[in-house]
């Protein structure tokens, strides 16, 4: 018997999931489910859209209206769903490769439009499903199967990228800090506009093994020691923040009009007699 939350929010007959032992994605998927529950949303009005990759398997497990789409196109599909039926709560679960490599253009244009989607990027710093190729978030110098001598690319900072592109809510959470992650995702869902939340996951199978980071316990311990809440960080010196990652709500704009609202106004204005 699973817990009440899992029984209510997951397709229990599909569990246990296919993710590796110690994969952070399971923790983050639970955080998303708990956040949806905490928001008190009607499950019939929740749509989970995902692309391709380890992260995107989440759409198969979550017991809502779900769409498992093509690689990188989750946000494009989600935009269509939201425009067709703006009363739906559309949540995108995507990965670092899915969202910022093949889907990079969809991401920045959805940010620019400020359409009311909540995008949660499960960032494991690598392409896990296809065998550990480096992704746009593999840190500079780290290894992947396609970067055996170290990655010479510089990595994206996903919340900064989204903020610069026009997202009106950005944040970062980790698999280790589950309670904070739930609160952040809740805030992202409640925000009326484009919300981007980077969920730092752990991939012990590829990223961890390639870079000698240890097992998932060691990788989560790293998150515990190196993630600093943005409010605490405000009181710290640049030296103290060296090598740390900021978590929490990173940016927010409340006075920018939302895309479907503006679209509905146009329909109202030029649509003629009903």
């Amino acid at each position: 018997m699973p817990s009440k939350l899992i029984e209510k929010t997951m397709r229990v007959n599909r569990l246990p999931h296919i993710w590796c032992p110690g994969c952070g994605h399971g923790i983050l998927m639970r955080d998303v489910a708990q956040a949806i529950e905490n928001c008190g949303l009607d499950p019939d009005k929740v749509v989970i859209v995902s692309g391709i990759g380890c992260s995107s398997r989440a759409a198969g497990y979550m017991n809502y209206n779900t769409l498992h789409t093509t690689h990188g196109r989750a946000i494009a599909f989600a935009t269509g769903v939201k425009l067709a039926n703006p009363e739906l709560n559309v949540i995108v679960i995507t990965g670092d490769g899915d969202a910022t490599a093949i889907g990079g253009n969809h991401l920045i244009h959805a940010c620019r439009r400020n359409i009311d989607l909540t995008v949660i990027v499960f960032n494991n710093n690598i392409y896990g499903m296809t065998g550990g190729q480096y992704s746009p978030t593999t840190p500079h110098g780290e290894k992947g199967t396609t970067a055996p001598y170290g990655n010479i690319d510089y990595n994206f900072d996903i919340p900064q990228l989204a903020q610069a592109a026009g997202a009106t809510f950005t944040g970062r959470c980790t698999a280790y800090h589950a309670q904070q992650a739930i609160k952040l995702i809740e805030a992202g869902i409640k925000h009326h506009g484009f919300s981007l939340i980077e969920g730092l996951s752990v991939c012990p199978t590829y990223y961890g093994r390639k870079n000698k980071k240890g097992d998932s316990v060691k990788m989560l311990s790293w998150q515990k020691d190196n993630a600093v809440d943005v409010k605490a960080a405000a009181k710290m010196t640049p030296e103290q923040l060296e090598g740390k990652i900021l978590i929490g709500e990173l940016s927010r704009v409340d006075n920018k009009e939302e895309y479907t609202d503006m679209y509905m106004k146009i329909i109202e204005k030029v649509g003629g007699d009903k």
Partner: peptide, 17 residues
């Protein structure tokens, strides 16, 4: 443990639920 179990294999059950 429940919050951090990636496989939902451990949890706290409240009696009467």
């Amino acid at each position: 443990c429940e919050l951090r179990c990636p496989d939902y294999a451990i949890y706290i059950e409240k009696e009467g639920e």
